[in-house]
Computed example of a mutant assay.
Amino acid sequence: MTHNRICRSPYDAVLCDLDNVIRFYDLTRLAELEHAAGLPPGTTAALAYGPEIDLPLLLGKITQEAWVDAVALGLADRVPEGTARALGAALARAPFRADPVVVSLLRRVRARLPLVLVTNATLELEDDLSTLGLADLADHVVSSARVGVAKPDREIYEIAAERAGVPVHRCLFVDDQLQNIEAAMALGMTGVHYRGPEDLREALAVVLEA
């Protein structure tokens, strides 16, 4: 794709997170299972997303099924084995959707600047993007499971900037996690803490209104 550079823009590429910016999960079923098991809300996710269990998945070293096994093992001292496995599976297979407002904004900006998704993801990411109808959303996708490094490791940002074809200090980086934004800004990127579509709209206004 050919991109028209906007001289007045403070950046030449947009690097954007996926989860909790573009993609959102429905954890209703997991919450119901936790309630039935007498577990505090969020127990399963807190365990599953801890670095010892989650990082091997995000680095592409284990499959999602192995991740579910690890979650079930971690819950084994609190609930019966069958319940523990059901909780892990409910998290792994939670339905998800894309925010149409964010998708629209990103499609518009991609017509003007390179767009790269930079995400801590699993080996299922490509299939997930196809399911969402977003396989063509970005010029490039930098997945932690494919490149072997995860945010906030500086290397994943450098890989993303290289694929965008611009220096790191000319990149806008959007994420919902402050530690990831701080790591990007330490490299000289412009950072945006995403809490809702207005944060993205404001950051992209200089490009979209040009």
Rank of each mutant, 00 (worst) to 15 (best):
I6N: 05
R8E: 11
P10S: 03
A13V: 03
C16E: 00
Y25I: 02
L39P: 11
L39M: 14
L55G: 00
P56S: 11
L57S: 10
T63R: 11
Q64K: 13
V68R: 08
V71T: 04
L75W: 07
R78S: 05
V79T: 02
P80S: 03
E81D: 09
G82D: 10
G82P: 04
A84M: 04
A86R: 07
A86E: 10
A92F: 11
A94D: 09
P100V: 04
V103G: 02
L105S: 00
L106R: 00
R110T: 00
R112E: 14
P114N: 07
P114H: 12
L115I: 00
V118R: 00
D127K: 11
L134E: 00
A138E: 01
D139G: 03
V142I: 08
S144F: 13
G148L: 06
G148Y: 09
Y157F: 15
A160I: 06
G165W: 13
V166P: 09
V168Q: 05
R170Y: 13
C171T: 05
L172G: 01
D176A: 11
M185L: 03
M189C: 04
G191W: 12
H193A: 06
Y194K: 01
R195I: 03
G196C: 10
P197L: 04
E202K: 08
L208S: 07
